[in-house]
Amino acid sequence: MKLGLFFSDLHGIEDTYDRINSQELGVFLVSNGIYHAVLKENGKPSKILNKKGASFYVLKEDLHTRGFSEGEVDSRVKVISYDDLVDLVMDRYEKLAWI
């Protein structure tokens, strides 16, 4: 399946995430989920970003709201706008899950 997963928290959802696999997986980092794109907790990038084959996106407005900028985003994550999000959701990922 082509699944788009929405992350809106920093902690508490890893267990479900680790177990989800999909033929095509997009991970949308929104709200407090943006921290996965920029923080290095204990010196290491978020484990969320280690999932093989997944595409990662972070919402620009939510990044800026929390005091972070594009230059701090992990190279595996693409910065997107709400417009980009609509295109990805409507064209690429047929199922969506806000976990």
Partner: peptide, 19 residues
């Protein structure tokens, strides 16, 4: 919670694109 804001902003972007 800011989740409702997210939903309304996503709705706006989608409507503006003709969905």
């Amino acid at each position: 919670s800011m989740d409702l804001d997210f939903a309304v902003r996503l709705a706006r972007a989608a409507i503006n694109k003709g969905h």
